[in-house]
Nucleic acid binder design. Structure first.
Lengths: 233, 233
DNA sequence: CCTCAGCTTCTTGTCGACAAGTAAAATACA
DNA sequence: TGTATTTTACTTGTCGACAAGAAGCTGAGG
Protein backbone atom coordinates (compact mmCIF):
# COMPACT_ATOMS: atom_id res chain seq x y z
CA UNK A 1 0.00 0.00 0.00
CA UNK A 2 2.64 2.50 -1.00
CA UNK A 3 0.21 4.33 -3.24
CA UNK A 4 -0.33 7.24 -0.87
CA UNK A 5 3.05 8.96 -0.80
CA UNK A 6 2.07 10.90 2.28
CA UNK A 7 0.43 13.96 0.68
CA UNK A 8 1.24 17.11 2.65
CA UNK A 9 -0.16 16.08 6.02
CA UNK A 10 -0.22 19.76 6.87
CA UNK A 11 -3.89 20.43 7.24
CA UNK A 12 -5.27 23.45 8.92
CA UNK A 13 -6.81 22.64 12.23
CA UNK A 14 -10.56 22.43 11.87
CA UNK A 15 -10.54 22.12 8.11
CA UNK A 16 -10.76 18.36 8.13
CA UNK A 17 -14.49 18.16 8.71
CA UNK A 18 -15.33 20.66 6.02
CA UNK A 19 -13.03 18.98 3.53
CA UNK A 20 -14.51 15.54 4.05
CA UNK A 21 -18.02 16.99 4.07
CA UNK A 22 -17.57 18.89 0.81
CA UNK A 23 -15.83 16.04 -0.98
CA UNK A 24 -18.33 13.41 0.04
CA UNK A 25 -21.23 15.71 -0.70
CA UNK A 26 -19.98 16.35 -4.20
CA UNK A 27 -19.35 12.66 -4.77
CA UNK A 28 -22.90 11.88 -3.72
CA UNK A 29 -24.61 14.68 -5.62
CA UNK A 30 -22.64 14.03 -8.80
CA UNK A 31 -23.53 10.36 -8.53
CA UNK A 32 -19.87 9.40 -8.26
CA UNK A 33 -21.21 7.50 -5.28
CA UNK A 34 -24.59 6.28 -6.51
CA UNK A 35 -27.47 5.72 -4.09
CA UNK A 36 -26.90 2.61 -2.04
CA UNK A 37 -23.13 2.91 -1.99
CA UNK A 38 -21.81 1.74 1.35
CA UNK A 39 -19.86 4.25 3.39
CA UNK A 40 -17.09 2.91 5.56
CA UNK A 41 -15.68 5.23 8.19
CA UNK A 42 -12.26 3.64 8.45
CA UNK A 43 -11.90 3.51 4.70
CA UNK A 44 -12.59 7.23 4.50
CA UNK A 45 -10.28 7.79 7.43
CA UNK A 46 -7.28 6.30 5.69
CA UNK A 47 -8.28 7.80 2.34
CA UNK A 48 -8.09 11.28 3.82
CA UNK A 49 -5.28 10.38 6.22
CA UNK A 50 -7.37 11.60 9.09
CA UNK A 51 -8.91 10.20 12.23
CA UNK A 52 -12.41 8.78 12.37
CA UNK A 53 -13.70 11.54 14.63
CA UNK A 54 -13.89 14.31 12.01
CA UNK A 55 -15.22 11.78 9.51
CA UNK A 56 -18.07 10.97 11.83
CA UNK A 57 -18.85 14.63 12.29
CA UNK A 58 -19.05 15.13 8.54
CA UNK A 59 -21.24 12.06 8.16
CA UNK A 60 -23.57 13.36 10.86
CA UNK A 61 -24.08 16.52 8.85
CA UNK A 62 -24.73 14.62 5.66
CA UNK A 63 -27.21 12.44 7.51
CA UNK A 64 -29.09 15.53 8.67
CA UNK A 65 -29.47 16.66 5.09
CA UNK A 66 -30.81 13.26 4.18
CA UNK A 67 -27.98 12.52 1.78
CA UNK A 68 -26.94 9.39 3.65
CA UNK A 69 -28.92 6.88 5.68
CA UNK A 70 -27.38 5.48 8.79
CA UNK A 71 -28.62 2.26 10.37
CA UNK A 72 -27.87 2.30 14.12
CA UNK A 73 -24.91 0.11 14.98
CA UNK A 74 -24.87 -1.03 11.39
CA UNK A 75 -23.68 0.22 8.05
CA UNK A 76 -24.36 3.64 6.60
CA UNK A 77 -24.90 4.27 2.93
CA UNK A 78 -25.84 6.86 0.34
CA UNK A 79 -29.57 7.46 0.50
CA UNK A 80 -31.88 6.45 -2.31
CA UNK A 81 -33.60 8.94 -4.55
CA UNK A 82 -37.29 8.78 -3.71
CA UNK A 83 -38.80 8.60 -7.17
CA UNK A 84 -42.24 7.83 -5.83
CA UNK A 85 -42.51 11.16 -4.06
CA UNK A 86 -40.69 13.16 -6.68
CA UNK A 87 -43.75 15.32 -7.23
CA UNK A 88 -43.29 16.79 -3.75
CA UNK A 89 -39.80 17.78 -4.80
CA UNK A 90 -41.08 19.41 -7.98
CA UNK A 91 -43.81 21.16 -6.07
CA UNK A 92 -41.39 22.61 -3.56
CA UNK A 93 -38.70 23.65 -5.99
CA UNK A 94 -41.23 25.34 -8.27
CA UNK A 95 -42.51 27.37 -5.36
CA UNK A 96 -38.98 28.29 -4.34
CA UNK A 97 -38.09 29.30 -7.88
CA UNK A 98 -41.03 31.67 -7.83
CA UNK A 99 -40.61 33.05 -4.33
CA UNK A 100 -36.89 33.67 -4.56
CA UNK A 101 -37.15 35.30 -7.97
CA UNK A 102 -39.99 37.53 -6.80
CA UNK A 103 -38.04 38.58 -3.73
CA UNK A 104 -34.96 39.25 -5.80
CA UNK A 105 -36.92 41.61 -8.04
CA UNK A 106 -38.16 43.31 -4.91
CA UNK A 107 -35.04 43.49 -2.81
CA UNK A 108 -31.92 43.44 -4.99
CA UNK A 109 -29.27 46.00 -4.18
CA UNK A 110 -26.20 47.39 -5.86
CA UNK A 111 -23.82 44.63 -6.86
CA UNK A 112 -26.36 41.82 -6.82
CA UNK A 113 -27.10 41.97 -10.53
CA UNK A 114 -23.41 41.81 -11.40
CA UNK A 115 -23.04 38.60 -9.42
CA UNK A 116 -26.13 37.10 -11.04
CA UNK A 117 -24.96 38.06 -14.52
CA UNK A 118 -21.52 36.58 -13.84
CA UNK A 119 -23.08 33.24 -12.94
CA UNK A 120 -25.25 33.41 -16.02
CA UNK A 121 -22.10 33.94 -18.10
CA UNK A 122 -20.58 30.86 -16.50
CA UNK A 123 -23.72 28.93 -17.29
CA UNK A 124 -23.61 30.04 -20.90
CA UNK A 125 -20.00 28.90 -21.15
CA UNK A 126 -20.87 25.49 -19.72
CA UNK A 127 -23.83 25.33 -22.09
CA UNK A 128 -21.67 25.96 -25.11
CA UNK A 129 -19.13 23.41 -23.92
CA UNK A 130 -21.93 20.82 -23.54
CA UNK A 131 -20.62 20.15 -20.05
CA UNK A 132 -23.62 18.80 -18.15
CA UNK A 133 -21.91 18.74 -14.77
CA UNK A 134 -20.79 22.34 -15.16
CA UNK A 135 -24.25 23.37 -16.33
CA UNK A 136 -25.83 21.84 -13.26
CA UNK A 137 -23.33 23.55 -11.01
CA UNK A 138 -23.52 26.97 -12.63
CA UNK A 139 -27.30 26.77 -12.87
CA UNK A 140 -27.38 26.14 -9.16
CA UNK A 141 -25.08 29.09 -8.51
CA UNK A 142 -27.19 31.32 -10.76
CA UNK A 143 -30.40 30.63 -8.90
CA UNK A 144 -28.64 30.70 -5.55
CA UNK A 145 -27.38 34.19 -6.37
CA UNK A 146 -30.94 35.25 -7.18
CA UNK A 147 -32.13 33.81 -3.90
CA UNK A 148 -29.40 35.69 -2.05
CA UNK A 149 -30.47 38.91 -3.68
CA UNK A 150 -33.96 38.14 -2.34
CA UNK A 151 -32.43 38.23 1.14
CA UNK A 152 -34.53 35.65 2.91
CA UNK A 153 -32.20 33.14 4.56
CA UNK A 154 -35.00 30.64 5.18
CA UNK A 155 -36.01 30.44 1.54
CA UNK A 156 -32.36 30.40 0.60
CA UNK A 157 -31.67 27.42 2.84
CA UNK A 158 -34.56 25.37 1.53
CA UNK A 159 -33.80 26.37 -2.04
CA UNK A 160 -30.15 25.38 -1.71
CA UNK A 161 -31.16 22.05 -0.29
CA UNK A 162 -33.56 21.47 -3.15
CA UNK A 163 -31.07 22.60 -5.78
CA UNK A 164 -28.37 20.37 -4.35
CA UNK A 165 -30.60 17.38 -3.95
CA UNK A 166 -31.79 18.20 -7.45
CA UNK A 167 -28.29 17.78 -8.79
CA UNK A 168 -28.89 14.06 -8.74
CA UNK A 169 -32.17 14.47 -10.60
CA UNK A 170 -31.01 17.23 -12.92
CA UNK A 171 -28.55 14.74 -14.31
CA UNK A 172 -31.55 13.00 -15.84
CA UNK A 173 -32.74 16.27 -17.35
CA UNK A 174 -29.47 16.89 -19.14
CA UNK A 175 -29.02 13.27 -20.09
CA UNK A 176 -32.43 13.38 -21.74
CA UNK A 177 -31.04 16.04 -24.07
CA UNK A 178 -27.77 14.18 -24.50
CA UNK A 179 -26.11 17.04 -22.58
CA UNK A 180 -27.45 19.52 -25.17
CA UNK A 181 -30.46 21.22 -23.61
CA UNK A 182 -32.50 23.61 -25.77
CA UNK A 183 -31.08 27.09 -26.07
CA UNK A 184 -34.29 28.39 -24.55
CA UNK A 185 -32.86 27.83 -21.06
CA UNK A 186 -30.34 30.57 -21.81
CA UNK A 187 -32.95 33.07 -22.93
CA UNK A 188 -35.17 32.09 -20.01
CA UNK A 189 -32.38 32.93 -17.61
CA UNK A 190 -31.74 36.23 -19.34
CA UNK A 191 -35.40 37.19 -19.33
CA UNK A 192 -35.45 36.51 -15.62
CA UNK A 193 -32.49 38.82 -15.13
CA UNK A 194 -34.25 41.56 -17.11
CA UNK A 195 -37.42 41.21 -15.06
CA UNK A 196 -35.46 41.35 -11.82
CA UNK A 197 -33.48 44.38 -12.96
CA UNK A 198 -36.72 46.13 -13.87
CA UNK A 199 -38.12 45.26 -10.46
CA UNK A 200 -41.06 43.69 -12.25
CA UNK A 201 -42.20 41.30 -9.54
CA UNK A 202 -45.17 39.91 -11.43
CA UNK A 203 -43.14 39.16 -14.53
CA UNK A 204 -40.32 37.63 -12.48
CA UNK A 205 -42.89 35.35 -10.90
CA UNK A 206 -44.33 34.29 -14.26
CA UNK A 207 -40.91 33.66 -15.77
CA UNK A 208 -39.69 31.69 -12.77
CA UNK A 209 -42.78 29.51 -12.88
CA UNK A 210 -42.39 28.94 -16.61
CA UNK A 211 -38.72 28.10 -16.14
CA UNK A 212 -39.51 25.62 -13.40
CA UNK A 213 -42.41 24.09 -15.32
CA UNK A 214 -40.21 23.60 -18.34
CA UNK A 215 -37.62 21.65 -16.36
CA UNK A 216 -40.11 19.72 -14.29
CA UNK A 217 -42.19 18.88 -17.33
CA UNK A 218 -39.21 17.52 -19.21
CA UNK A 219 -38.18 15.29 -16.33
CA UNK A 220 -41.74 14.08 -15.84
CA UNK A 221 -42.08 13.23 -19.52
CA UNK A 222 -38.81 11.37 -19.21
CA UNK A 223 -39.96 9.41 -16.22
CA UNK A 224 -43.33 8.65 -17.75
CA UNK A 225 -41.50 7.22 -20.74
CA UNK A 226 -39.30 5.10 -18.46
CA UNK A 227 -42.37 3.95 -16.61
CA UNK A 228 -44.07 2.88 -19.81
CA UNK A 229 -40.97 0.94 -20.72
CA UNK A 230 -41.05 -0.73 -17.35
CA UNK A 231 -44.63 -1.74 -17.88
CA UNK A 232 -43.90 -2.96 -21.37
CA UNK A 233 -41.34 -5.43 -20.11
CA UNK B 1 -19.85 18.27 44.13
CA UNK B 2 -21.83 15.30 45.42
CA UNK B 3 -25.02 16.60 43.88
CA UNK B 4 -25.10 14.05 41.09
CA UNK B 5 -25.72 10.75 42.88
CA UNK B 6 -24.64 8.79 39.82
CA UNK B 7 -27.95 8.49 38.00
CA UNK B 8 -28.30 5.08 36.37
CA UNK B 9 -25.21 5.17 34.17
CA UNK B 10 -26.87 2.53 32.04
CA UNK B 11 -27.51 4.31 28.80
CA UNK B 12 -28.42 2.62 25.60
CA UNK B 13 -25.62 2.70 23.11
CA UNK B 14 -26.24 5.45 20.56
CA UNK B 15 -28.83 7.25 22.65
CA UNK B 16 -26.37 9.71 24.12
CA UNK B 17 -26.25 12.04 21.14
CA UNK B 18 -30.00 12.23 20.78
CA UNK B 19 -30.49 12.82 24.49
CA UNK B 20 -28.03 15.69 24.62
CA UNK B 21 -29.39 17.10 21.38
CA UNK B 22 -33.00 17.05 22.53
CA UNK B 23 -32.26 18.43 25.96
CA UNK B 24 -30.07 21.26 24.74
CA UNK B 25 -32.49 22.08 21.96
CA UNK B 26 -35.37 22.38 24.38
CA UNK B 27 -33.29 24.48 26.74
CA UNK B 28 -32.42 26.84 23.92
CA UNK B 29 -35.88 27.08 22.39
CA UNK B 30 -37.59 27.57 25.73
CA UNK B 31 -35.08 30.28 26.56
CA UNK B 32 -33.79 28.35 29.56
CA UNK B 33 -30.50 29.09 27.87
CA UNK B 34 -31.01 32.61 26.54
CA UNK B 35 -29.21 33.79 23.42
CA UNK B 36 -25.55 34.43 24.16
CA UNK B 37 -25.26 31.74 26.81
CA UNK B 38 -21.85 30.14 26.59
CA UNK B 39 -21.73 26.43 25.90
CA UNK B 40 -18.90 24.49 27.42
CA UNK B 41 -18.29 21.00 26.15
CA UNK B 42 -16.60 19.62 29.22
CA UNK B 43 -19.26 21.10 31.45
CA UNK B 44 -21.97 19.35 29.43
CA UNK B 45 -19.86 16.22 29.41
CA UNK B 46 -19.80 15.93 33.16
CA UNK B 47 -23.39 17.11 33.49
CA UNK B 48 -24.57 14.20 31.35
CA UNK B 49 -21.85 11.87 32.63
CA UNK B 50 -20.78 11.24 29.08
CA UNK B 51 -17.71 11.75 26.93
CA UNK B 52 -17.12 14.87 24.89
CA UNK B 53 -17.41 13.03 21.58
CA UNK B 54 -21.20 12.59 21.57
CA UNK B 55 -21.57 16.10 22.95
CA UNK B 56 -19.66 17.47 20.00
CA UNK B 57 -21.83 15.52 17.61
CA UNK B 58 -24.98 16.98 19.15
CA UNK B 59 -23.50 20.47 19.04
CA UNK B 60 -22.63 20.03 15.37
CA UNK B 61 -26.27 19.29 14.65
CA UNK B 62 -27.47 22.28 16.61
CA UNK B 63 -24.97 24.45 14.77
CA UNK B 64 -26.36 23.27 11.44
CA UNK B 65 -29.82 24.40 12.48
CA UNK B 66 -28.42 27.75 13.43
CA UNK B 67 -29.37 27.39 17.07
CA UNK B 68 -25.79 27.81 18.26
CA UNK B 69 -22.89 29.79 16.86
CA UNK B 70 -19.46 28.29 17.03
CA UNK B 71 -16.33 30.40 16.69
CA UNK B 72 -13.47 28.26 15.33
CA UNK B 73 -11.05 27.26 18.03
CA UNK B 74 -12.94 29.47 20.41
CA UNK B 75 -16.09 29.39 22.44
CA UNK B 76 -19.49 28.37 21.18
CA UNK B 77 -22.71 29.93 22.38
CA UNK B 78 -26.46 30.09 21.88
CA UNK B 79 -27.17 32.11 18.75
CA UNK B 80 -28.84 35.47 18.90
CA UNK B 81 -32.36 36.08 17.67
CA UNK B 82 -32.01 38.22 14.58
CA UNK B 83 -34.63 40.85 15.28
CA UNK B 84 -33.49 43.01 12.39
CA UNK B 85 -34.38 40.38 9.82
CA UNK B 86 -37.44 39.11 11.62
CA UNK B 87 -39.62 40.06 8.67
CA UNK B 88 -37.97 37.34 6.62
CA UNK B 89 -39.02 34.89 9.28
CA UNK B 90 -42.59 36.16 9.23
CA UNK B 91 -42.65 36.06 5.47
CA UNK B 92 -41.45 32.47 5.35
CA UNK B 93 -43.64 31.14 8.12
CA UNK B 94 -46.73 32.79 6.66
CA UNK B 95 -46.06 31.11 3.33
CA UNK B 96 -45.51 27.77 5.04
CA UNK B 97 -48.71 28.14 7.04
CA UNK B 98 -50.56 28.62 3.78
CA UNK B 99 -48.83 25.96 1.72
CA UNK B 100 -49.01 23.22 4.32
CA UNK B 101 -52.63 23.91 5.12
CA UNK B 102 -53.55 23.92 1.45
CA UNK B 103 -51.76 20.64 0.88
CA UNK B 104 -53.39 19.10 3.92
CA UNK B 105 -56.84 19.95 2.54
CA UNK B 106 -55.78 18.36 -0.71
CA UNK B 107 -53.99 15.26 0.47
CA UNK B 108 -55.23 14.19 3.89
CA UNK B 109 -56.01 10.54 4.32
CA UNK B 110 -57.85 8.40 6.81
CA UNK B 111 -56.48 8.95 10.30
CA UNK B 112 -54.87 12.31 9.66
CA UNK B 113 -57.84 14.33 10.91
CA UNK B 114 -57.96 12.38 14.16
CA UNK B 115 -54.32 13.21 14.85
CA UNK B 116 -54.87 16.87 14.04
CA UNK B 117 -57.98 17.05 16.24
CA UNK B 118 -56.10 15.39 19.10
CA UNK B 119 -53.40 18.02 18.97
CA UNK B 120 -56.04 20.73 18.83
CA UNK B 121 -57.60 19.23 21.98
CA UNK B 122 -54.20 19.39 23.67
CA UNK B 123 -53.85 22.99 22.59
CA UNK B 124 -57.25 23.84 24.00
CA UNK B 125 -56.28 22.23 27.30
CA UNK B 126 -53.08 24.24 27.44
CA UNK B 127 -55.05 27.36 26.53
CA UNK B 128 -57.46 26.86 29.37
CA UNK B 129 -54.62 26.20 31.78
CA UNK B 130 -52.94 29.46 30.66
CA UNK B 131 -49.75 27.46 30.18
CA UNK B 132 -47.78 29.44 27.60
CA UNK B 133 -45.04 26.85 27.18
CA UNK B 134 -47.57 24.09 26.61
CA UNK B 135 -49.51 26.29 24.19
CA UNK B 136 -46.39 26.91 22.14
CA UNK B 137 -45.58 23.23 22.12
CA UNK B 138 -49.05 21.98 21.26
CA UNK B 139 -49.53 24.72 18.68
CA UNK B 140 -46.36 23.50 17.01
CA UNK B 141 -47.58 19.92 17.09
CA UNK B 142 -50.96 20.96 15.68
CA UNK B 143 -49.48 22.68 12.67
CA UNK B 144 -46.84 20.00 12.25
CA UNK B 145 -49.62 17.42 12.05
CA UNK B 146 -51.32 19.48 9.35
CA UNK B 147 -48.05 19.70 7.45
CA UNK B 148 -47.63 15.94 7.70
CA UNK B 149 -51.10 15.41 6.32
CA UNK B 150 -49.99 17.57 3.39
CA UNK B 151 -47.29 14.99 2.72
CA UNK B 152 -44.52 17.17 1.41
CA UNK B 153 -41.37 16.43 3.41
CA UNK B 154 -39.57 19.52 2.13
CA UNK B 155 -42.25 21.91 3.30
CA UNK B 156 -42.50 19.95 6.51
CA UNK B 157 -38.79 20.29 7.19
CA UNK B 158 -38.73 24.04 6.63
CA UNK B 159 -41.96 24.51 8.56
CA UNK B 160 -40.66 22.55 11.53
CA UNK B 161 -37.51 24.60 11.53
CA UNK B 162 -39.52 27.81 11.48
CA UNK B 163 -41.95 26.62 14.13
CA UNK B 164 -39.10 25.55 16.40
CA UNK B 165 -37.08 28.68 15.85
CA UNK B 166 -40.37 30.50 16.38
CA UNK B 167 -40.71 29.01 19.85
CA UNK B 168 -38.29 31.66 21.02
CA UNK B 169 -40.29 34.40 19.35
CA UNK B 170 -43.71 32.98 20.17
CA UNK B 171 -42.80 33.48 23.80
CA UNK B 172 -43.12 37.18 23.11
CA UNK B 173 -46.53 36.64 21.55
CA UNK B 174 -47.90 34.90 24.59
CA UNK B 175 -46.17 37.21 27.01
CA UNK B 176 -47.85 40.14 25.27
CA UNK B 177 -51.19 38.63 26.30
CA UNK B 178 -49.89 37.78 29.76
CA UNK B 179 -50.19 34.11 28.74
CA UNK B 180 -53.87 34.63 27.97
CA UNK B 181 -54.18 34.92 24.20
CA UNK B 182 -57.59 35.76 22.72
CA UNK B 183 -59.96 32.84 22.38
CA UNK B 184 -60.04 33.49 18.66
CA UNK B 185 -56.94 31.35 18.20
CA UNK B 186 -59.02 28.35 19.26
CA UNK B 187 -61.79 29.07 16.77
CA UNK B 188 -59.23 29.83 14.10
CA UNK B 189 -57.70 26.43 14.59
CA UNK B 190 -61.08 24.76 14.46
CA UNK B 191 -62.12 26.61 11.32
CA UNK B 192 -58.93 25.41 9.72
CA UNK B 193 -59.77 21.84 10.63
CA UNK B 194 -63.23 22.20 9.13
CA UNK B 195 -61.84 23.61 5.89
CA UNK B 196 -59.31 20.79 5.65
CA UNK B 197 -61.94 18.16 6.36
CA UNK B 198 -64.13 19.66 3.62
CA UNK B 199 -61.16 19.58 1.24
CA UNK B 200 -61.80 23.28 0.67
CA UNK B 201 -58.33 24.29 -0.47
CA UNK B 202 -59.14 27.93 -1.12
CA UNK B 203 -60.73 28.41 2.28
CA UNK B 204 -57.90 26.58 4.01
CA UNK B 205 -55.50 28.98 2.32
CA UNK B 206 -57.44 32.05 3.41
CA UNK B 207 -57.78 30.83 6.98
CA UNK B 208 -54.11 29.90 7.25
CA UNK B 209 -53.09 33.30 5.99
CA UNK B 210 -55.43 35.04 8.40
CA UNK B 211 -54.12 32.93 11.26
CA UNK B 212 -50.54 33.74 10.39
CA UNK B 213 -51.28 37.43 9.88
CA UNK B 214 -52.95 37.61 13.26
CA UNK B 215 -49.92 36.20 15.06
CA UNK B 216 -47.37 38.10 13.00
CA UNK B 217 -49.31 41.34 13.37
CA UNK B 218 -49.48 41.03 17.12
CA UNK B 219 -45.74 40.42 17.43
CA UNK B 220 -44.96 43.28 15.08
CA UNK B 221 -47.18 45.65 17.05
CA UNK B 222 -45.37 44.48 20.15
CA UNK B 223 -41.97 45.12 18.66
CA UNK B 224 -42.98 48.49 17.26
CA UNK B 225 -44.06 49.43 20.76
CA UNK B 226 -40.75 48.29 22.19
CA UNK B 227 -38.92 50.20 19.53
CA UNK B 228 -40.79 53.38 20.35
CA UNK B 229 -39.86 52.91 23.97
CA UNK B 230 -36.24 52.51 22.96
CA UNK B 231 -36.38 55.79 21.08
CA UNK B 232 -38.13 57.50 23.94
CA UNK B 233 -35.30 56.72 26.31
C1' DC C 1 0.67 55.58 33.06
C1' DC C 2 0.59 53.28 28.72
C1' DT C 3 2.28 49.63 25.35
C1' DC C 4 3.87 45.47 23.84
C1' DA C 5 6.15 40.92 24.16
C1' DG C 6 6.08 36.59 26.42
C1' DC C 7 3.67 33.37 29.30
C1' DT C 8 -0.35 31.01 31.20
C1' DT C 9 -4.63 28.99 30.87
C1' DC C 10 -8.58 27.52 28.86
C1' DT C 11 -11.27 25.63 25.04
C1' DT C 12 -11.51 23.24 21.05
C1' DG C 13 -9.97 19.83 17.33
C1' DT C 14 -7.90 15.45 16.64
C1' DC C 15 -6.23 11.02 17.70
C1' DG C 16 -5.74 5.99 18.79
C1' DA C 17 -7.85 2.44 21.43
C1' DC C 18 -11.55 -0.15 23.44
C1' DA C 19 -16.37 -1.87 24.02
C1' DA C 20 -20.95 -2.97 22.26
C1' DG C 21 -23.74 -4.54 18.91
C1' DT C 22 -24.88 -6.85 14.41
C1' DA C 23 -24.46 -9.85 10.37
C1' DA C 24 -22.41 -13.55 8.34
C1' DA C 25 -19.63 -17.80 8.81
C1' DA C 26 -18.89 -22.01 11.05
C1' DT C 27 -20.47 -25.69 13.66
C1' DA C 28 -23.52 -28.92 15.88
C1' DC C 29 -27.65 -31.34 15.66
C1' DA C 30 -31.90 -33.63 13.96
C1' DT D 1 -29.59 -32.43 3.94
C1' DG D 2 -31.79 -28.77 6.37
C1' DT D 3 -32.03 -26.09 10.61
C1' DA D 4 -30.71 -24.11 15.01
C1' DT D 5 -26.82 -22.31 17.58
C1' DT D 6 -22.36 -20.73 18.57
C1' DT D 7 -18.42 -18.26 16.91
C1' DT D 8 -16.15 -14.98 14.36
C1' DA D 9 -15.33 -10.78 12.03
C1' DC D 10 -16.45 -6.33 11.28
C1' DT D 11 -18.65 -1.80 12.06
C1' DT D 12 -20.08 1.60 14.89
C1' DG D 13 -20.38 4.31 19.40
C1' DT D 14 -17.75 5.97 23.18
C1' DC D 15 -13.83 7.12 25.79
C1' DG D 16 -9.65 9.45 27.76
C1' DA D 17 -5.62 11.86 26.36
C1' DC D 18 -2.88 15.01 23.75
C1' DA D 19 -1.90 19.08 20.82
C1' DA D 20 -3.04 23.52 18.57
C1' DG D 21 -5.09 28.19 18.84
C1' DA D 22 -6.75 32.15 21.16
C1' DA D 23 -7.86 35.27 25.02
C1' DG D 24 -6.26 37.11 29.09
C1' DC D 25 -2.57 37.92 32.45
C1' DT D 26 2.24 39.44 33.72
C1' DG D 27 5.76 42.24 33.75
C1' DA D 28 9.43 44.89 31.52
C1' DG D 29 10.40 48.93 28.93
C1' DG D 30 9.23 53.45 27.26
Amino acid sequence: MANTPAPPPERKRGSGVKMVYDLLRDDILDLVMPPGSPIDEVQLAERFAISRTPIREALARLAMEGLIDTLPNRSTMVSQIDFVNLHTFFDAITLMYRVTTRLAAQNWRAGDLEVIRAHQADYRAAFEAHDALAMIGTNRDFHAAIAEAGRNPYYLALFLRLLDEGRRILRLYYQSFDDRPPASVITEHEDIIIAIAARDVARADVLAKAHADQIVGQIQRLMARDQRQDIAL
